[in-house]
């Protein structure tokens, strides 16, 4: 294992921020995994740290394939993490909206450029991502459809679900999108935690990435388990919005299967406690996403459902 400083940024008031990458094996740039780019992506950093630990053991056992180089970047933004901010410390910009970056541009453009210079050119790329909507997800892998990455490769992770997303304009400055433009087969992997560490889903993610590496000849060992992946278009998810605001109490959790007419949750008045609305399932399905805060607005997306 080689520990390298990939990019360094000076601050007038803090120690410099050094983005650290861990390299394994020698030869062609084969596999790159990027963890936290936002300050609250603790789970994403943790997954990478566990991956580094596992790969270190594998390398010492000679299990990294010949002519394969692997890079893991656990955190690209610990400056924000250390002060409890999600986005960049000073101007609140999002590094994951700055790719491919610009080395003569603004600070987060320069950070993105520094990262991209190190991560481009790999055959496969995985980003441990978090979502802009607050809630719990079933662990899954997602492909942003650019026409470059092979959809079938998503099955190699052995996660229960894989989604294909049609990019929206704001997606075009993400790492995942630009990786593909520069001809890396890129995937976003979502566990069911961000701010907190969830051990079972972290282990699931580590195993999924190693399983992908095994299936594509990057490591010389089998990773047992895994699911037969169901591939879905993101648009096939049914969204259930709240018709009213108030206190939200869910009766189902992610992964639960329900029937049409089942009560999914109730909304109560936050001041007098009366039940304002019970929300029933419009059809049979599986809870893929569940909003996880007690207070909700009118029109909040409470559930995303896989129809069955």
């Amino acid at each position: 294992m080689r520990r390298k400083t990939l990019y360094s940024l000076r601050s007038p008031y803090r120690e410099s921020m050094d983005i650290i990458g861990f390299q394994f094996g020698q030869g062609e740039k084969t596999m790159c995994v990027v963890g936290a780019m936002r300050g609250n992506e603790v789970q994403q950093m943790y997954v990478c740290s566990q991956l580094v630990s596992r790969l270190k053991d594998m390398e010492s056992s000679g299990l990294i394939a010949d002519n394969c180089e692997v890079m893991i970047i656990p955190s690209a933004n610990y400056y924000s993490m250390n002060i409890g901010k999600r986005f960049w410390t000073m101007d609140n910009t999002d590094i994951n909206r700055m790719f491919p970056g610009y080395d003569l541009g603004e600070t987060t453009q320069r950070i993105a450029a520094g990262i991209f210079e190190s991560v481009k050119g790999y055959k496969y790329g995985v980003q441990l991502a978090s979502f802009y909507q607050q809630g719990d997800f079933l662990p899954h892998v997602k492909l942003m459809e650019t026409g470059f990455t092979d959809h079938e490769l998503m099955k190699c992770f052995g996660l229960p679900f894989a989604f294909i997303r049609k990019p929206r304009p704001y997606d075009t400055t993400t790492l995942n999108y630009n990786w593909q433009i520069w001809e890396t087969q890129a995937f976003s992997l979502y566990t069911n935690a961000t701010d907190n560490i969830d051990e079972p889903s972290a282990k699931l993610a580590v195993d999924a990435i190693l399983r992908f590496m095994s299936a594509n000849g990057v490591i010389k060992t089998k990773i047992p388990g895994g699911y037969i992946t169901e591939m879905l278009d993101e648009k096939s998810l049914l969204q259930i919005h709240s018709p009213v605001a108030g206190i939200y109490k869910s009766f189902v959790k992610t992964g639960d299967e329900f029937r049409k007419g089942d009560i999914l949750c109730e909304i109560t008045d936050p001041l007098d406690g009366s039940v304002i609305r019970q929300i029933t399932a419009p059809s049979d399905g599986i809870v893929f996403f569940r909003y996880n805060r007690p207070l909700e607005f009118e029109k909040t997306v409470l559930y995303k459902v896989i129809p069955i």
Binding site: V244, A245, G246, P270, F297, E298
Partner: peptide, 11 residues
Amino acid sequence: KAGLSVNENIV
């Protein structure tokens, strides 16, 4: 217009 969580709307 949309309802906020506690006794208020965004308008």
